[in-house]
Computed example of a mutant assay.
Amino acid sequence: MKLEEVLYKIGLFVESLTNKTARFLRGILFPSPQKNKSPLLSKFVVKKGFTVHEAISLNLQLSFILYIILNSIIILLKLSVFYLPLLFLLHMLFIRYILGAYSEYLINENNAYKVFYYGISALSFIAFLGYAVLRYRTANALYIYAYIILVVFAVLAFRQYFREKFGRDYTYGVVEEVKGDLIRVFVHDDIAANVKPGFYWLPRVEGVKLGDVVKVLVEPRAFRSSKPVRILEVLQSSHTSTEPKADAE
């Protein structure tokens, strides 16, 4: 093979790699709606009886858990503090990508998910970074304990702010089964109502039918997810094109 042909093929490879890298970075930095793609773990979640909406929430939860674990490892192993902002940047880019690319699959308030995960991630970054810097500059345990207490108050303040701005005592569900005086309702993951996704047996109300979309009252519980307790009203029939679960799937 001639040298010109070798150089030409190398040039084509470099050009292709550059274009793919540019598309990848553009997709991460400036995510656009992915109408024909689903987020990670979607097939697993749908097989369990849930929807893509729950897959998005699961991606965000697992990302945050992994972020906390990696931060903790950096702190425990006393690695360079510069790893913390790098890890924070990667984590925020992932959240931005998930919420930007798959926002159309979110059934409940998209803004609530943004505020919660951006807010709690930023608080975590400040907490870990401040702790690392403080531990490096002083050996006085009182300062460290005081800082930890301050972080706890900051988290509680953010929690109260989120509840006041987005919190509500109701969520939405779809009637999946009617059995005597009880109905089985599928409730989506709802961060504003603090409800876990799943199937709940609730008292039957007059006029409710299989497939109806219903508004469900939830009961707050300390340090636990809220519990659906009863149906407030029937909103619409699931036979229409606006039924949430059908849209998500």
Rank of each mutant, 00 (worst) to 15 (best):
S42D: 09
A112T: 06
V213N: 10
K215E: 14
A146T: 15
N36Y: 04
V216Q: 02
I56M: 03
T21S: 15
E54W: 03
V152G: 10
Y97D: 06
Y102R: 01
G11T: 15
L76C: 02
L7F: 13
Q160H: 08
K20E: 07
M1F: 12
V175I: 13
F44K: 00
E54A: 02
L66H: 01
L123N: 10
L41Y: 06
E219T: 08
K43R: 14
A101Y: 07
I231R: 00
Y8A: 14
S63C: 12
N19G: 13
D212S: 15
L41T: 10
L106Y: 01
L70R: 00
G198E: 07
L210C: 09
L17M: 12
L76G: 02
E233L: 11
I98G: 02
R184Y: 10
A246E: 11
I183D: 06
P203A: 01
L3H: 12
T242S: 14
I191R: 03
V6Q: 11
G130P: 08
S32A: 12
I126P: 04
F153I: 15
F94H: 10
T138D: 10
L76I: 04
L99K: 00
Y118N: 00
Y67A: 00
L217F: 15
R163Q: 11
L235I: 14
R135I: 13
V216D: 05
K9I: 12
K245Q: 03
A101T: 09
P39C: 01
L210V: 09
G180K: 05
Y97C: 07
N36W: 02
I28E: 08
L60N: 00
A248F: 01
K196E: 15
V115A: 08
F223A: 08
S63Y: 02
L41H: 04
I191P: 04
V45R: 02
G198S: 12
G167T: 07
A146K: 15
Q61I: 15
R163A: 10
A154K: 05
G173S: 04
R26F: 14
P244T: 08
V45G: 00
E249L: 15
M1Q: 13
V205E: 04
Y67R: 01
E5M: 11
K78W: 12
F128D: 00
E249P: 03
Y136I: 12
A122N: 06
D190W: 06
E206Q: 12
F116D: 07
S237I: 01
L17K: 13
A55H: 06
R168W: 05
E104W: 10
W201D: 07
Y67Q: 00
Y145W: 15
N140V: 09
T21A: 13
A246D: 12
A101L: 06
V152K: 11
L3K: 14
S80V: 08
P85H: 07
A101H: 10
G119W: 00
N108S: 11
K196H: 12
L79A: 11
N140R: 10
F158W: 09
L217E: 14
Y145M: 14
T171G: 08
T21E: 14
I231S: 04
P39E: 01
G211I: 09
D181F: 04
A139S: 15
A248C: 11
L79G: 04
S72D: 02
R224Q: 10
K215G: 03
V205S: 07
L235N: 02
F128R: 04
R26M: 13
